[in-house]
């Protein structure tokens, strides 16, 4: 492990299925505090399902599923989220009927002891584009702006780990660069990130190490180059 030493999230032997179709087979991974880990894999490999299963949003079974040394298996998603696990879904799922400021309000949770909580002001410093549109309805925003809002909304919950699902998907290169900045800023704040990605370039720019997922199984882990090479075969 490159960054921290204490494991924040431990996943061991995770299986998940949609109805009768099994999607994940014995997935195991670990994230330490403050590190940025990429979960690489093609479309349909099971990346999103892995993240959702951790958060309790899809039915799953695991030999071990702990966050901050607490078992989170079977907990309601809102309880898991309150422990400090944030999630930014692939489809962003912004509340389009709400303004930017209201979207942030939905995400607001108290910070754990001793940490300065995220405020709209701090987030606007991180995402200057958002600052100018705090009163605007979210359906009047571009895809990139919505992606920023989705991350900012999750940060309002003061998470110690963020599950970031395909943050660079479908975005213009300029915006992708801003996303990379955002991930680095989170790391600087001591927030761990597990991000799912299809493209090696973005993952390489921000992550410390990687896991490779194919057909619902972990096929490789280690450096990004090694994982990319293993998945390419």
């Amino acid at each position: 492990m490159s960054a921290g030493t204490t494991p924040l999230l431990v996943v061991e032997g995770l299986d998940a299925a949609y109805g009768r179709a099994r999607v994940l087979f014995d997935v195991s991974l670990e994230i330490a505090a403050g590190e940025v880990v990429a979960l690489m894999g093609r479309n349909g490999a099971g990346k999103s399902t892995t993240l959702k299963a951790v958060l309790g949003l899809v039915p799953a079974k695991a030999r071990r599923l702990t966050f901050l040394d607490r078992s989170i298996a079977g907990l309601a998603p809102h309880r898991i989220a309150r422990l400090g696990l944030g999630w930014v879904p692939e489809e962003r799922r912004i509340f389009t009927e709400l303004t930017v400021a209201e979207n942030l309000e939905v995400g607001r949770r108290p910070a754990p002891d001793g940490r300065a909580p995220w405020t709209p002001e701090r987030l606007f410093a991180l995402f200057p584009n958002l600052a100018e549109m705090r009163g605007r309805r979210a359906d009047a925003m571009s895809g990139g702006e919505q992606q920023m809002l989705a991350i900012a909304r999750t940060l309002m919950g003061n998470p110690s780990l963020v599950l970031l699902d395909e943050p660079s998907e479908g975005l213009a290169p300029v915006i992708v660069e801003q996303m990379a900045d955002a991930v680095r800023a989170m790391k600087q704040e001591g927030i761990a990130v597990l991000l799912s990605e299809q493209t090696a370039a973005f993952a390489a720019a921000v992550s410390d190490r990687a896991y490779g997922l194919a057909r619902g199984e972990i096929r490789a882990s280690g450096t990004l180059d090694a994982v990319s090479a293993a998945l390419a075969v």
Partner: peptide, 24 residues
Amino acid sequence: TRFGILVRAATQDREMVGALGVDQ
């Protein structure tokens, strides 16, 4: 009010509101 904002958010996407830590 926060309650009202949560109600409007949940009207649109309940699951997301839960994933953000709100007790549905």
